[in-house]
């Protein structure tokens, strides 16, 4: 998920997600949310394009993300935990990524987005 939303093609960004199948993993490893995970999410924050992420989350049916990332929120442990869950445990298994500019579609099958371009699109 985190990368699906980050993967974009040139000007055509962010890709719109059409989800067919979404898999949500609850508590991988059976372990809980640890301090190191919190550090991890904090470190991820500057790499996120927030509006794009909100859009992506909406697309896969998670409309709970706030529209703006405030400073308070980025210190809030429970918010970060929820964000971690969305980033790490929600996987798009089957669907389509659509470029908002050109309408070019990239299929996602078995959880693997196929970002390959045709040979005439390379130059």
């Amino acid at each position: 998920m985190s990368n699906n939303s980050k993967a974009a093609k040139g000007k055509g960004y962010p890709l719109k997600i059409t989800a067919v199948e979404v898999k949500v993993i609850q508590n991988p490893n059976g372990g809980g949310f640890e301090g190191s995970d919190l550090e991890f999410v904090k470190r991820l924050l500057p790499t996120l394009d927030w509006p794009a992420l909100v859009q992506a989350a909406n697309d896969v049916g998670i409309p709970t993300l706030p529209p703006l990332l405030t400073v308070e929120l980025s210190e809030d442990a429970s918010f970060l935990q929820a964000l971690y869950h969305i980033l790490m445990n929600v996987h798009l298994i089957k669907g389509m990524l659509t470029c908002p500019v050109t309408g070019r579609e990239f299929p996602v099958t078995d959880g693997i987005p196929n970002m390959m371009l045709e040979e005439d699109e390379c130059s």
Binding site: A8, G10, M115, C122
Partner: peptide
């Protein structure tokens, strides 16, 4: 499948994409 190796050791699922490293610029932000 790739996932199976990770599941085998009870590890979280990695993020896998099909891209072309020669075109990294076009694929990623």
């Amino acid at each position: 499948q790739i996932w199976k190796n990770f599941e085998h050791y009870n590890l979280p699922r990695p993020e896998i994409l099909r891209t072309d490293n020669a075109l990294y610029n076009k694929h990623f932000r």
